[in-house]
Design a binder for these strands. Structure first.
Lengths: 184, 184
DNA sequence: TCCTTCATGTAACGAGTTACATGATTTG
DNA sequence: CAAATCATGTAACTCGTTACATGAAGGA
């Protein structure tokens, strides 16, 4: 039940069309709630049906033409209600950890290469977050909204740092299979 | 495409019935790949159909009676092939971070209480992992399989530590609402 | 017998993914 | 006009969740 609320949040920050939302999900919002355009159009339809958003009057309902949405009072109310909900943290569900556990049973030739690849990807993602932080959250800006958004970004940064640390330690602890053929 | 491989891994570690698997998923395996008995039975059926596992001969195919499965060579091969696959890390998708971002837009009365609640849950989970670590990975045990399984558990421990650190910093950075309802 | 627990399932639905379809606008 | 790109959608499928159904075994 999170995607519609991610969309409402995005539309409150700035009224947008489906494709614009998709692009914003690829950038800032998708860093903690990713989505595809198919899902977004589907949800926009439902939200409009439910009277929580509406297409701006300037937009004709013709296929292939841009259609901008804005949030209606009912949508804002629904988002407020959702923010107040309690929700337990989800259990971890990570394919890489699962691969590792499986590797303990059936063997893991090449797993170290995959760990190195992930390490590199997380380093890149971290660099991207840090660039965003430097651009969007200079020390002087300190409104309440900025502080909350900065905390969210910090979550992403800390999470990448967790992965980098764990992967580094993991690579120290398992034998390499690339150039030194000591494991079988 | 991970659940069948989680099941194959679990069955290689120890042949089990559906309910036994469910309980093992609630304990060790579910710490990085959670599942319900409905999903497990569904997958067991598919894996049996595919010739990757089979019911032990001693088990009759009667409804309501225990049915133990073991992995066939084809299943082990499929698992080995899956372990060798590359898979990019998934994008973050976390309702709490999303709530925080939404709170930056529509306001956040009571969000600090929810953060405190999550902090407590993560502390409990961390304590549980540390207990498992102390029980299952004493310093003297050091086989290759143990090392990999220990790394997986370390992933869980480090992840809980990430959340505890982030939530603590977040609570320092946002104003408290409500008098002090944290008794309980 | 009735109740509980163990054990194996079915059914229906929602969320997410992948592939494809259709129309409008720009530009060569 | 043709092709590329912008933009909005449909369809089909898998995975995960929730609620419910069915049967067996053991004890009050």
């Amino acid at each position: 039940m999170s995607l519609p609320h991610a969309i409402l949040t995005a539309l409150l920050e700035k009224p947008s069309s489906g494709l614009e939302l998709t692009r914003r999900f690829d950038r800032s919002i998708g860093y903690f709630w990713s989505s595809t355009h198919q899902q977004i159009y589907r949800e926009l339809g439902k939200l409009e049906q439910a009277g929580q958003i509406r297409a701006l009057p300037s937009a004709q309902p013709a296929r292939g033409q841009k259609k901008e949405y804005e949030v209606l009072p009912a949508g804002r109310a629904a988002l407020s209600a959702w923010v107040a909900l309690r929700e337990d943290p989800k259990q971890i569900r990570d394919p890489l950890l699962l691969r590792m556990r499986a590797a303990a049973v059936v063997g893991a030739p090449g797993l170290d290469a995959e760990l190195r690849r992930h390490l590199e990807l997380h380093r890149k993602q971290l660099a991207e977050y840090l660039a965003i932080e430097g651009r969007d959250f200079p020390p002087e800006r300190n409104s309440e909204e900025d502080r909350l958004r900065h905390l969210v970004l910090r979550g992403g940064i800390d999470l990448e740092n967790f992965w980098i640390g764990w992967l580094t330690r993991a690579l120290d602890g398992i034998p390499a299979t690339g150039s030194s053929p000591s494991a079988g």
